[in-house]
Write a protein that binds this DNA or RNA. Structure first.
Lengths: 232, 232
DNA sequence: CGGAATCTTGAACGATTTCAACGGTAGTGG
DNA sequence: CCACTACCGTTGAAATCGTTCAAGATTCCG
């Protein structure tokens, strides 16, 4: 874990929607108690149960939040890309991390912000408080979506829904996406085995519904995938 | 839907952990913009997409939060018993309800609190703000638990985990629980069919792991169920 | 250039869903 | 008050789907 201990600039901190509404002076102050971190691929950031003394923002790469079961299975709770903040909730409760965190397959660059300092700031700036509240509410909705997706009984349905919610590249009428994580991790996120994921994609290929190349997926028959997903 | 339009007393409002830390005067004020509601079994409270102008607290009975899929399946996001508050998140975002809500099998008595009035209050009382923040964080953790549970591949495992987290009655060493919802709803919550739930319970009975009577379940072999659940 | 890890594919097994039928219960209306 | 209906819960049998185990292909990293 590489640490750069120079303060983070307000501009850097403003990449996070959570901090964006803070006044310049507060960001400057917050920057002095913040560091930048660099994590290698799959490197651990923190483990569930450790006391949460800081919150983190993802500057580049991605952070995977996961639980591990007794039998070694790894359940991915969320994959956080650039601009996301992590562990605010744990910091608020003055509690400990409820999940494990590690860098994604391509490593990660992070901002580490001192928790106590952050809490102080919130009490001084109501708009910051509102921003945090809104961020938590959005996270809540994401998790509700997640719960709904996981309760779909069919593996293909879950994958279809996941892909359709990904930001698509390309012209209107076409649908190209780049998987944000390794297929292994994606499978865990969708509550299926990597084998099943591979087979679902193969089926889509065989039926000419999609073209799959490495981490790029292009949907040829969007209507079919949408119908499979249950709802657009 | 039966409405009692007399104000709610601070004592009544204080049944909700969310409102507990509010000063007496604020609760009095909040009470004047609050009503009590009475819902029959399965009666609808609100539907997903409607603008959220109020939040609700469960005084008695239960409220089921759910999504319905295109094919008519009903996925239960949460079952909220007495003391729970509902829809704070939607009110904060000045948004619309992300899920449907209806009364549980035994109906529900609710407090309806005006959203705008509540938001005002929060800005005047920092401790109230903290309380709300903490409540949202706890909800977040609950959902993370839920996501983890739903990703367990085995139906028996999911049921075991659910039951072990229920508040148990009885003396130490014994474990009796009363299911908080109808078996049909419980099955939906655990992402399985009612048939599968029935069969899992039958298996537990046959192996003398549990006694099932109506909505009462007594675990005879707690160790076995705990091992099945994957972790205590 | 190994070597590890990921991804893919095959086959067999196990589990859950589906479809169907039945008993019980609660609520309705005569 | 009693029949009638509707729904819930249970059980059975068959089919489907996903997992597991195993092996081969590929990529990436040291």
């Amino acid at each position: 874990m590489l640490v750069r201990s120079t303060p983070l600039s307000p501009a850097e901190l403003r990449t996070f929607p959570l901090l964006k509404p803070l006044r310049e002076e507060l960001l400057l102050e917050l920057g002095t108690s913040a560091h930048a971190l660099e994590l290698a691929a799959n490197e651990s950031l923190f483990r569930a149960g450790e006391p949460a003394t800081a919150l983190y923002g993802v500057l580049a790469g991605s952070i995977v939040l996961y639980r591990s079961s007794a039998d070694g299975r790894e359940q991915i709770v969320h994959d956080s890309g650039a601009g996301r903040t992590i562990a605010e909730a744990a910091v608020f409760l003055y509690g400990s991390f409820p999940v494990n965190a590690r860098a994604g397959a391509r490593g990660a660059r992070l901002a580490r912000v001192d928790g106590a300092r952050f809490l102080e700031l919130l009490d001084r700036d109501p708009s910051a408080m509102h921003s945090v509240l809104a961020a938590l509410c959005r996270r809540l909705h994401e998790l509700v979506d997640r719960v709904e997706m996981l309760s779909l009984p069919d593996a293909g349905q879950r994958l279809a829904r996941f892909i359709l919610r990904l930001p698509a590249e390309g012209r209107a009428g076409t649908f190209r996406v780049r998987l944000p994580v390794a297929k292994k991790d994606l499978a865990a996120q969708l509550a299926m085995t990597p084998e099943t994921l591979s087979r679902v994609l193969k089926r889509w290929r065989d039926q000419a519904w999609a073209v799959v190349q490495e981490e790029e997926i292009e949907l040829l028959d969007i209507a079919a995938i949408e119908e499979l997903s249950g709802e657009p």
